[in-house]
Design a protein around this nucleic acid. Sequence first.
DNA 1: GAAATAGTGTCTCTGAGACAATATCGT
DNA 2: ACGATATTGTCTCAGAGACACTATTTC
Lengths: 245, 245
Amino acid sequence: MFTSEKEYLKHYNIHDYDVPLVSVDIAIFTLLDGKLHILLVERGDFPQKGRWSLPGGFINQQQDKDLHATALRKLTEKTGVKTPHLEQVATIGNTKRDPRGWSVTVLYMGLIPYAPTADFIETVADARWWPYEVAIKQNLAFDHIELVTQARERLRVKSGYTVLPVYVLNAPFTLTQLQQAFEELLGTEIEKKSFRRRIQAADLLEEVGEGLPEGGRGRIAALYRPRKGSEQHAFIRAFGGSEED
Amino acid sequence: MFTSEKEYLKHYNIHDYDVPLVSVDIAIFTLLDGKLHILLVERGDFPQKGRWSLPGGFINQQQDKDLHATALRKLTEKTGVKTPHLEQVATIGNTKRDPRGWSVTVLYMGLIPYAPTADFIETVADARWWPYEVAIKQNLAFDHIELVTQARERLRVKSGYTVLPVYVLNAPFTLTQLQQAFEELLGTEIEKKSFRRRIQAADLLEEVGEGLPEGGRGRIAALYRPRKGSEQHAFIRAFGGSEED
DNA sequence: GAAATAGTGTCTCTGAGACAATATCGT
DNA sequence: ACGATATTGTCTCAGAGACACTATTTC
């Protein structure tokens, strides 16, 4: 049919093809009053207008150089928050998830220290932090309940062998605060000595002075902030004892 | 603009939007003569005609109910092999990876016991197993060299805390064969006793008789096959001692 | 019996889990 | 001194790593 690559590309037109919708959705978590929260937006337009959903949207071929850029842009436009950690979780694509037809979404998971959402937000009626347990009982748009639980699961598992939970805290923080963040994100308690031993042996934090302890009373606590690159450290042994299945 | 969901959907037309290309690519690995191999196809059509690439292609909105189905269909069409393990690795999307423009690909990784490729193959000039080390020195199509290394890395890491390597062997197999598969997929040696202790304690295999040992000479070896569901078992401690970074 | 392969015994070392003890702060 | 919180000591236990040893097969 075509005789050269150049010839082929000249005649290529994506609209000759039957392409699915592609979107990016972002599950952003934080810790507020010691509890896991997730950021949801109320949809301002059809479809599913008025329902709560994950922030997200379509790729802008002019503005976005890659998928990660799309995720960051959508997050800023819709919520005004900036995340220090954003990772891809999975891509879900099927015929049923969107009434408009075959639809593919790339799901991201992000973590951030608590920050209020911006006053001005585009194309959404509202952007709000929800306690996780409350959020999953809402009637979310599309298949977002599954996306939310999938992102939550990634967060839980990865909190067991990395120091991801540092990203829901504002530095500097005490080891007790960090342990509480781990426990909330893991959904289980950690033995204090085990926790401190692991964190300190890994040398992923640097001490930056001392400060008030957790409850305002008691012995002065050492304050820490994450070292550069601590994000990608993986322990060979996971917290929690019971094996994953 | 619209007053109801129904109204909105009636006027919705995906071709009004600027959508990217979406494809699925599959990195299938096997073990042949004790060495890791990967399945590549020679592209029969433009673009990049004549270059070797991962098997893959576009979603067929009529035939495929989800992305996983697309991956399975493409694999069968292009190579004739059926895989007992197929998992999603990541989704790569950017402006540069395809000369046709903004392009998104969902990368899958699969494992299979060695089987020849089918004689009849659609839209590809050839489908062949390549030794991994040779494959990555080829000038692969698009950004497939990065996809291949990303899938390889997933395989390596996951071989450290699961029993994934069982899927490159034909059951029944001996523990020695399994250990050799682990070592090749991990890219490192494992101490025999540690290996056997772990595998046997986890109770993921069932014994199915005895058979000739590895080299045809020597003591008769016990033969095993994976138990149902062993696939999703994860050890809390990874093989290899050195921590991931 | 020798070579080859399968399988075991056992010591050491690392790091998690449990829990008690000590240290330092405000009042 | 007391209550609260931070920090450390130390014992136990699971499981990886190392390496030597025993067992069973073919030739």
